[in-house]
Amino acid sequence: MSGERPALAPGHSVRVWDIPVRLTHWSFALLVPALWWSAENSQWVLHKRFGIALLGLLVFRLLWGLFGTKTAKFTSFVRGPKAVFEYLRGKSGGAVEKIGHSPLGALSVLALLAAMAVQVGTGLFAGDPYDGATGPLNSLVGVLTADALTDWHEWFVYVVLGLAAFHLSAIAFYLIVKQNDLVSPMLSGSKLVRGSVEANEPTPLVRFVAVAAIAASFTVWIANGAPPLS
């Protein structure tokens, strides 16, 4: 919070989040409540479609975390416990403004992605063919395994919702207490800064399409029950 800073040009806008990061983020924000609603209301056709969509987005986001732009890459934002601790003590910022996930926010990203992955993963095997809807991979496991995974799927949703609630609270805290609006950059892709900050790369469209095609192919394969290849 160093207020004594040399007078600089008025804030200028720098690129922070690429298009795929924003698209996946807001899709998660819509799909998680939609999945919850569809399950609560026994809308299993919708629930399965939303679940497959979430699978595709998760696979895409994980790949984009390897091949995406700087602020999308896991290697650029996942930090060790030391960095998280220093961030919590307010030491890490210094005079240099940074873009992208904070060391603490990175943990939140990982937790949310992992929780959604567990939820989607158990959902793929959930259900009972003699009693309503089943996930596309249900027949690959035994009835008791499927039953255990269904139980997991039913309680683990509260972990997902709990993390989402925590995520919203953190955003509210940053907005109200720290006067730091995290929502606008996630919508527009850029944020206002005063200092000199290295902006994120623009969205590499060819790479975006290629990674999306891989994620989509994989997802279609899973949605069809993972049939043997060749």
Partner: peptide, 23 residues
């Protein structure tokens, strides 16, 4: 952290709407 007077209201409204929706 720099502070800006950039419109914090719309996000606040959005956030509240989302939370209300969850509720």
């Amino acid at each position: 952290m720099a502070r800006f007077d950039r419109a914090t209201l719309p996000p606040t409204v959005l956030l509240c709407t989302v939370m209300a929706g969850c509720g």
